[in-house]
Simulated assay, not measured.
Amino acid sequence: MSLLGINQQYQRFIESETNQDYDASTELYIKEVRTGSIIVELVALAMPIAPLVWSGGSLSEWTTQAKAVIDWLLEKMDTPPKEVSKQDLKQWKNILEPVAKDNGSQLNFTVSDGGTVINQFFINPQEANAAQNTIQRQLERFEEPDDHTQKNKIMYWYQTKFDTESHTGDKATIEDISKKPLKVIFENTQ
């Protein structure tokens, strides 16, 4: 799930940074497996325009953004470097999971061109745990009901009575707000 999350975050970066429909196919290749280590290469394929869009290449730019997201999750920055969705948070939680669970591990992001390192950062287990705690708090905020009006949301009736004196019934589910059926009170009951 960690490797899949890295791939998905890179794909999302390409989609959000380009204003045209680029077919950003990426592949994860296992470069080396040895005791206690897995070295993976993320390779961008079939994107001839990418070097023209980003100096240093799209992987280098994505690594810069990934580092900024990690810094935000470690509360080194007040605001995220980009809009972060619930799905993004879940993917970052998956990316950090192996390092957070293993006190002797480390996650290294290195972008290189041949033997020259272009961009690099590391995440240790303490940072991974701290970032996951921030992710959990952020995910809980997504679950909190909003204080403002929701529009164009699908509502499924769970139970109806249409009795203004009853304290039971008239429940519905709006999945974007809550997975559980909630009491429905209509503003205009006439």
Rank of each mutant, 00 (worst) to 15 (best):
S2C: 13
L3V: 04
N7Q: 14
Y10T: 03
Y10P: 00
R12D: 12
F13I: 11
E17L: 03
T18A: 11
Q20F: 14
Y22I: 15
D23M: 12
E27V: 03
Y29D: 07
K31A: 09
V33D: 05
G36P: 07
E41R: 13
V43Y: 06
V43N: 08
V43I: 09
V43L: 10
P51H: 10
S58K: 01
E61W: 09
W62T: 00
T63H: 02
A66R: 01
K67P: 01
W72S: 05
L74T: 02
P81M: 03
P81G: 04
E83W: 04
D88E: 12
L89Q: 02
K90G: 06
K90M: 13
W92A: 00
W92C: 02
K93E: 02
N94G: 08
I95N: 03
E97K: 14
V99W: 02
K101N: 15
D102Q: 14
D102H: 14
G104K: 15
Q106H: 06
N108V: 15
F109P: 03
F109E: 02
I123A: 06
P125K: 10
A130L: 10
I135N: 00
Q136R: 08
R137E: 06
Q138E: 15
E140N: 08
F142P: 11
H148M: 05
K153S: 04
K153Y: 03
G169T: 10
D170M: 08
K179E: 02
P181R: 06
F186I: 13
F186S: 08
E187H: 11
N188G: 05
T189V: 15
